[in-house]
Nucleic acid binder design. Structure first.
Lengths: 115, 115
DNA sequence: TTTAGTACCTTGTATTGCAAGGTATTCAAA
DNA sequence: TTTGAATACCTTGCAATACAAGGTACTAAA
């Protein structure tokens, strides 16, 4: 169907905009490894693919927003636990503000639309 | 500065996700021409460039979500007024739902982050 | 007839999400 | 001891797309 295609496409677009923000939010709550981040995002209906998250974590690490440590697992290969840095936290504050601004913006247009 | 770069970059990303949604919302409130759509978005701090909006309007027209009519202006060249179609309205409903879902998702992660 | 303002549109570049494919580790069953 | 399943990591190549930059055209005033 074309209809759902348009919407699906846009849901994807919307998600893309908040990927880095979501990751930083999750890591601000505690250290996680890639697969668990994917799961946590899935839990709130923000779907991410592996091929998206790994390069992204590497990028955020390079930018100095994240760090990682290896940790053994009893149930498979070692896990790379990512943690947020101080720089990451300060940037996160900016993203919080950006998200709030965007939400307000959309709300405004929405209300105008209903008026 | 690099710091603001990271945030600016993400603000842009976030905006991108809601471009089509914003346009449909604005046109649901009344017919507008490209420049006025840009202005209305700017009014709520969602910045869009001309090079973004024109191809996008054409795409939405092709998808059948919009139509347009030419209208003379006393203050310059003719304006292309876009209007939302029935299909556009039905898709908009889906986008409303998508946005709500995303907002809730982010809220959830945010709250977990604060807990 | 030139300049300023407004409005339209296209081209080329750079970013980036993601499908697909690949490697490595552990554990349990055959 | 080999095979298979589960888990975890990562890379490559393609496709989509926002936007900077550059371009056309109409109106009105200087």
């Amino acid at each position: 169907m074309e209809n759902t295609g348009i919407i699906e496409n846009n849901k994807t677009q919307m998600r893309r905009g908040v990927l880095e923000y979501s990751i930083l939010l999750i890591l601000a709550a505690g250290d996680e490894y890639a697969s668990s981040i994917i799961q946590k995002m899935k839990d709130v209906n923000i779907i991410v693919a592996e091929g998206t998250i790994y390069p992204l974590l590497i990028r955020l690490k390079k930018l100095g927003l994240l760090n990682y440590r290896w940790e053994e697992s009893t149930q498979g290969p070692p896990r790379k636990y990512y943690m947020i840095t101080d720089l990451g936290r300060s940037q996160l504050a900016g993203l919080d503000a950006a998200w709030d601004e965007l939400s307000k913006g959309i709300e405004s247009i929405r209300n105008a639309s209903r008026a």
